[in-house]
């Protein structure tokens, strides 16, 4: 194996970049192979990949009603709308 190829295969920065690109878009066949070989030998990046996908899963599971407006702000909103209606 050439050392250039070795460097590519054993590069965690590159591997995590490809993991992200694969999750959110697509990667080439050569990149898929490279990543496959890397992950087979790198448990740290396998952990990274698992956690990266978990983060996406948790992120998309947030819902509108996880966030609530405080009553004081709602009151000022109503007042502003009333004022605007009177103005027009």
């Amino acid at each position: 194996m050439t050392s250039a190829l070795k460097n590519m295969i054993y590069n965690c920065k590159q591997a995590t970049f490809l993991i992200e690109k694969r999750i959110a878009g697509k990667i080439t066949a050569a990149e898929t192979l490279l990543l496959h070989v890397h992950l087979a030998g790198c448990s740290v990046c396998r952990t990274y990949q698992q956690q990266s996908m978990l983060i996406n899963k948790v992120f998309i599971s947030f819902e509108n009603n996880d966030f609530k407006l405080d009553e004081a702000f709602k009151k000022t909103l109503i007042e502003k709308i009333e004022k605007e209606i009177i103005k027009n």
Binding site: F62, E63, N64, N65, D66, F67, K68, L69, K74, L77
Partner: peptide
């Protein structure tokens, strides 16, 4: 709608 819209924006 205020809570719904606020949640939509916060997300």
């Amino acid at each position: 709608y205020a809570d719904y819209l606020y949640g939509f924006a916060m997300l």
